[in-house]
Design a protein around this nucleic acid. Structure first.
Length: 98
DNA sequence: GCTTTGACTCTCG
DNA sequence: TCGAGAGCCAAAG
């Protein structure tokens, strides 16, 4: 199993309505490849299966998304996550830690 | 193999 | 609050 697959595996565990950060994922993989994590999600081939849109930046902002940040935000709100100006509302409570 | 490029994070001013 | 700079890791060229 390569690095990318590990990242996707972890992402899959994020419960609906919650969000996690690139950092948390990296930590879960026992590495500091925050950027590589984002890179892996960017190439995520399991778009609907793996909820990569639930992964945001550590400061609570949405971050990027292959199909555009707007789309990412819409998906999150559809799951009950409030977002305003690229920022997760109540991020501290919604953040899912492993 | 070395260099470049990111859906990143931290620290400082 | 905000931007710049440095540090970080994997993948692609």
């Amino acid at each position: 199993m390569n690095f990318n697959e590990k990242v996707w595996q972890v992402c899959r565990k994020i419960p609906k309505g919650k969000v996690s950060t690139y950092k948390e994922i990296a930590k879960r993989l026992k590495t500091k490849a925050y950027r590589a994590v984002g890179n892996a999600l960017n190439k995520n081939p399991y778009s609907p299966i793996v909820p990569c849109h639930r992964v945001v930046k550590s400061d609570g902002t949405v971050g990027g998304f292959a199909k555009g940040t707007r789309t990412k935000i819409r998906m999150l709100e559809k799951e009950g996550v409030r977002v305003r100006k690229n920022r997760i509302m109540g991020f501290k409570n919604l953040m899912f830690k492993f």
